[in-house]
Design a protein around this nucleic acid. Structure first.
Lengths: 338, 338
DNA sequence: CTGAAAGCGCTTACAG
DNA sequence: CTGAAAGCGCTTACAG
């Protein structure tokens, strides 16, 4: 490996000059031919800065960690693409980690920060997590941003417009002539589940339609949760004519359970889901979905984190560009009041 | 942040002792009470080693980069879980990157290595990649392992038993009474596509069934490729009674195209795919699939990389535990020769 | 059994 | 316009 010193020797200058030329220090005055000699030596030797030396001196790692419950989930995979791209834009490298690293019994997240391996954290909590309080266990002063969470006091957060997504899905079904509309929701303690449910309720209220509590379930965002939610609906007749599902993975479960129960979608039950991952286009029938800007959510979370790392105070960002968009496919049909 | 020096002062010893106690240097003799004092000081101060200092001194970063074409693909997501877990086991942190970083125009992968930010690379090439030659552009001596590739000369590789997966899928259809069996394959230049096709051909040959070239397509591993492959099949009648699909994402495309063409699966066409990601369980009908150990592939690639980093010479690993397993679901039916 | 010292590669006041 | 020197936090021969 070639060091700064090797470059300096070849160019016949001191290491200070080389370092300053390379960092493009604006306060630096050098003769043009000196600078040229330095650059030439850098090129000839194929010099690259050693990261550890730089990090040690600058007390900064140039890395952030992205903590997700499960990369094997199209939503988080999409978020991670956005994080990675925006982080790279800011010359930050992204470390891949799991939400469980935050657990005190695990401690990996705290260690990573204390060791100075990462300068900040982007966190997606597991849905079954009690609450964002888990972040209070990190060493104080660690820059962190929570994604898919709205407005938690101590910490920055970035989320999409989940309320609007819930509202849009519901309004679409109302316009189609449905009035008996259920909600297959996420866990009540998660911020996104509450927001999507609020949107659903508001849309019903705006249309003067009364909500039936038995048609609302809050079992989570997995295919299994979707199956369980469907089972519960079918156990407490009458069945609604349509459901809003808060998550596309759960929606896939609803579809599978409906098929098993010989309830045909969309003839007997319309389904509109939040989140338009590619799975939505590959169920049968293909899912009518509300697309939310997942990639942008990831990108914005990385940008927010860099701001926090640069000392800006905590902030709550709502990513609403592009806004939630209804993508009609095959799981909706006109309702009885059309 | 507390430094080694702070611990040393509090314990009333020199930094050397603290460092050696912490690294559990076996050649070290210390009095038990000295060691106890050191450990107590570490605990009291909440000391953690600074990573940059350590990395600079040891000339080692403790990180590996995983380069994949697209995290938004259940197969790579599963692989990444395995990589991350096995890397963590070896006290290595995993950096998330994209295969395009290898491109000379991009250069990020080379830079990461030269900077000493990562000690090695785990690479999944894009399918449209010309060949593994792209790795020759890395700085010489960079430890790297190619995943989902069999036996490339210059570089270590780890793969699953793709030939057996192809054979198993085909044999299953033959036993069901099919003899007109097509192959929806991957690009011919990829190692996995060739291996799966070899397995398919051998199974046919073993059963004394003649292969029809028009029933073999090699368009890739995406849903779009699956759709295109199906279109081609239907354009050149007769249709086979069954197809082996080399990839689950392509299989989802085949199913969607069959639906659009009103060809019913499995009544008119049986489909068996390689790769059992969760999507296989959520198409309609659910896909009969050959499960290959994707997570283990990731884990083994991290282990192989650590071996290479420790100086072992290049190796080609076949991950065959657990072996490919046929998971029967809803896309197969008895064939005309049953 | 323990400590003083060199050095990993870098940046940045400071001096000239 | 350029250089000598200190120091970021660590490990490890070497000395005693």
């Amino acid at each position: 490996m070639t060091r700064l010193r090797d470059v300096a020797e070849r160019a016949g200058v001191s290491v200070s000059v080389v370092s300053r030329v390379l960092s493009e220090d604006p306060s630096l005055r050098v003769r043009d031919d000196t600078r040229a000699r330095v650059l030439e030596a850098v090129r000839d030797l194929g010099y690259t800065q050693n990261h550890a030396g730089r990090a040690l001196r600058l007390r900064w790692s140039g890395a952030v960690a992205l903590l997700v419950p499960d990369m094997n989930n199209a939503i988080f995979a999409e978020v991670s693409r956005g994080v990675e791209a925006a982080a790279a834009e800011a010359d930050l490298v992204t470390l891949l980690g799991r939400s469980e690293w935050l657990d005190p019994e695990n401690g990996r997240a705290a260690r990573l920060c204390q060791q100075g391996r990462v300068d900040g954290l982007i966190v997606q909590l597991r849905d079954e997590e009690r609450s964002p309080e888990i972040l209070d266990l990190l060493p104080p002063g660690v820059p962190a941003v929570l994604i898919n969470w709205h407005q938690h006091r101590g910490i920055s957060s970035v989320a999409v417009d989940d309320e609007e997504a819930g509202r849009l899905a519901t309004a679409f079904l109302l316009e189609l002539g449905h009035r008996e509309i259920g909600l297959v929701g996420g866990f009540a303690q998660t911020s996104t589940a509450r927001a999507r449910e609020t949107g659903y309720r508001k849309a019903l209220a705006d249309a003067g339609v009364t909500r039936r509590e038995a048609w609302t379930t809050r079992l989570g965002y997995t295919p299994e949760a979707g199956r369980a939610a469907f089972a519960r609906l079918i156990d407490t007749p009458p069945l609604p004519t349509a459901v809003v599902v808060s998550n596309v993975n759960a929606a896939a479960g609803v579809l599978a359970a409906a098929r098993d129960a010989a309830i045909s979608v969309p003839e007997q039950l319309s389904v509109v889901t939040v989140h338009d991952t590619w799975i939505a286009d590959h169920t049968n029938p293909a899912l009518t979905a509300v697309r939310v800007p997942t990639y942008e959510l990831g990108a914005e979370s990385a940008r927010t984190l860099t701001r926090v790392m640069h000392g800006e105070r905590k902030q709550h960002v709502l990513v609403d560009d592009p806004p939630p968009l209804l993508v009609p496919r095959g799981t909706h049909a006109p309702g009885p009041h059309a």
